Amino acid sequence: MKKNMGNSDRVFRIIVAAILVGLYFSEVLTGTIGIIALVVAGIFALTSLVSFCPLYTLFGIKTKAKT
């Protein structure tokens, strides 16, 4: 699995995940929407930790700088 995410993309995903988790636990997002937000936050956190996004592979996107 080749890394295809750059640092700015990873930071952005972590920030969005933290916001979604915060909105869920502050009860702004509840019910089904809250659960979906937690799942999306988990996916964002996981993909940013491993620097790989499967959807980027499908669409041929790479945000990682070439070295």
Rank of each mutant, 00 (worst) to 15 (best):
I33S: 11
I15G: 05
F12S: 12
K2R: 15
G6C: 05
V40A: 14
V39C: 07
L38C: 03
P54G: 01
F12C: 10
L58Q: 11
I19F: 11
V50L: 02
L29M: 06
C53I: 00
E27G: 06
S48L: 02
T47C: 04
I15F: 11
G42N: 02
E27Y: 13
G60Q: 08
M5V: 03
I19R: 01
A41V: 00
C53V: 05
S8L: 14
V28K: 11
T57E: 14
A17L: 04
L20Q: 02
G34A: 00
I14K: 09
D9L: 11
I19C: 10
M5K: 09
L55V: 11
L58Y: 11
I19D: 06
T47D: 06
M1V: 10
A17M: 06
V21Q: 00
S48R: 00
T63Q: 11
G60N: 12
T57V: 13
R13A: 07
F44M: 07
F59D: 06
C53Y: 02
P54Q: 04
F52V: 10
A18R: 01
L29G: 01
C53P: 04
S48E: 03
A18W: 06
V21P: 00
N4F: 09
A17S: 14
K2Y: 12
S26Q: 08
I36E: 03
Y56R: 12
G31T: 01
R13T: 04
V28T: 10
Y56T: 04
I43E: 05
R13D: 06
G60I: 06
A18C: 14
R13G: 04
Y24D: 01
A45F: 14
S48Q: 04
M5H: 03
A17E: 05
K64R: 15
I15P: 02
Y24F: 13
K64W: 04
S51M: 14
L23R: 05
N4W: 08
Y24Q: 03
V40G: 07
G34T: 00
G6Y: 05
V11M: 14
L20G: 04
K62A: 07
A18S: 15
I33W: 08
G42E: 04
A41W: 01
G60L: 09
L58V: 15
I14W: 15
F12W: 09
G60R: 07
K62H: 13
T30F: 02
G42R: 04
T47H: 01
K3E: 15
C53D: 12
T30E: 08
A41H: 03
S48V: 02
S26D: 08
G22P: 05
V16N: 01
V50S: 05
G42K: 04
N7A: 13
K2S: 14
I35K: 13
I33R: 09
L23V: 02
I33H: 07
L20S: 04
M1P: 12
N4A: 10
I33N: 09
L46E: 08
V11Y: 13
F25G: 05
R10M: 05
L38Q: 03
K2T: 09
G34W: 01
K66S: 15
V16A: 11
F25C: 02
M1N: 14
I14R: 11
F25N: 04
G6T: 06
M5N: 05
N4K: 12
R10K: 14
S8M: 12
K64A: 11
